[in-house]
């Protein structure tokens, strides 16, 4: 990449893909905290469970993404579900089986699983 134009083109395209400037698609983004603390708390099986379930349920609009530390270590493994036009949902203390439930009820069914939502423990 040699020019600022190229940089701005990527920026524009990515921001549309991530729905950052208004809704351009109905993708659902599932961000799994996979820093060392998340991994230590067991986030890798959660990540794999989400990937497996999304594939099994055929949810082509759901993207499972790894990210760094969300900051609140005591609640790891933590996952955030972001959808354009809807409030972000933060899930805490997850495991492979709770990931499966969230995939079925929230990602496929559209209803957040309140049992694992932050602040409702």
């Amino acid at each position: 990449m040699k020019t600022i134009q190229e940089l701005n083109d990527i920026r524009k395209q990515m921001r549309a893909e991530l729905n950052l400037d208004g809704k351009t698609n109905s993708n659902i983004r599932v961000t799994v905290g996979l820093a060392t603390c998340g991994i230590a708390a067991g986030a890798e099986p959660v990540f794999k469970a989400f990937q497996k379930e999304v594939k099994r349920l055929g949810l082509t609009n759901v993207k499972i993404i790894q990210s760094g530390c969300l900051g609140m270590c005591k609640h790891e493994p933590m996952v955030e579900v972001t959808e354009a036009g809807k409030e972000k949902v933060t899930y805490i203390a997850l495991a492979a089986d709770s990931a499966k439930r969230i995939a079925e009820e929230h990602l496929a069914g559209g209803k957040p699983v309140m049992d694992f939502v932050i602040g409702n423990e």
């Binding site: 990210s67 760094g68 969300l70 949902v89 309140m114 602040g119």
Partner: peptide
């Protein structure tokens, strides 16, 4: 009902600059 980390007491008083992308983007 609060469903999001951003609205908790933990986050509300924070101002994330150095950490602005941590937990948001795929590194």
């Amino acid at each position: 009902i609060n469903k999001c980390l951003d609205k908790t007491d933990f986050m509300k008083k924070q101002y994330r600059v150095a950490l602005q992308n941590s937990g948001v983007i795929n590194p």
